[in-house]
């Protein structure tokens, strides 16, 4: 049977039929590894992140990588054209991906991308927002909660100042941006369930 991994971090949504599930999984792992490494590099450049304990750095990255990638690659979801571009550079219509059996999660990803795009964030705002997403003190397994909370607070403060400065007339913009965080958390959970079901299958 055909195995479909319609994640834009994959090279192609449909796996080669002659490959075993293990080989498909390994190919997928190879295709998203560079993006994960970039998230780690990004984290290292967040002031204060490297001062956290190594275990807390790993915990935050493990829990938040999907959310960071979702923000970073939101532009792969073309809302107007209803297409998704995979890292191979090939573009697929949402309809075609749905035809392969992908549905709910992709719809939610499109919705998120559209909402994020509507905020028209600058590159600087997007970077700082991504840092706030990554340094979330409520991830399970944090050892030194106080350090992570302090870093998160300082990042949120900096984001608030930046957003207010770039658009002083729109006080709700910062709130709208912070409200994207629970959306990302929901997407992360649904995505995890999807991965889990693939592994069980």
């Amino acid at each position: 049977k055909d195995i479909v991994l319609a994640c834009p971090m994959n090279m192609y949504p449909q796996a080669e039929p002659n490959k075993t599930p293990q080989e498909i999984w390994e190919d997928f792992s190879l295709s998203f590894t560079p993006a994960v490494r970039e998230v780690v590099e990004f984290a290292k450049h967040i002031p204060g992140f490297s001062a956290l304990s190594e275990n807390d750095q790993v915990t935050l990255l493990k829990a938040g990588t999907f959310e960071v990638l979702m923000v970073r690659f939101a532009s792969l979801f073309n809302v107007k054209e209803q297409t998704v571009t995979f890292i191979s550079g090939t573009t697929y219509s949402l309809e075609a991906l749905k035809g392969m059996g992908m549905g709910g999660l992709l719809d939610t990803m499109f919705e998120f991308s559209e909402k994020l795009k509507s905020l028209e964030l600058t590159a600087e705002e997007l970077g700082l927002f991504t840092a706030v997403v990554l340094v979330s003190a409520d991830r399970s397994g944090i050892e030194n909660l106080n350090s992570v909370e302090l870093l998160q607070e300082s990042l949120i403060k900096a984001l608030r100042a930046l957003v207010s400065k770039s658009n002083p007339c729109d006080a709700s913009r910062f709130t709208k941006l912070l409200l994207k965080m629970p959306d990302l958390r929901t997407l992360n959970n649904v995505h995890s369930e999807k991965l889990l079901s693939f592994r069980i299958d």
Binding site: E41, A63, R199, I200
Partner: peptide, 27 residues
């Protein structure tokens, strides 16, 4: 299979990428 992130090998990739930084750090 209770932890999708571990199943993806994510922790291994993350730890190696973080350690890369430590290796590059000057003595």
């Amino acid at each position: 299979f209770s932890d999708p992130a571990s199943n993806l090998g994510l922790e291994d990739i993350i730890r190696k990428a973080l350690m890369g930084n430590l290796e590059e750090r000057p003595e």
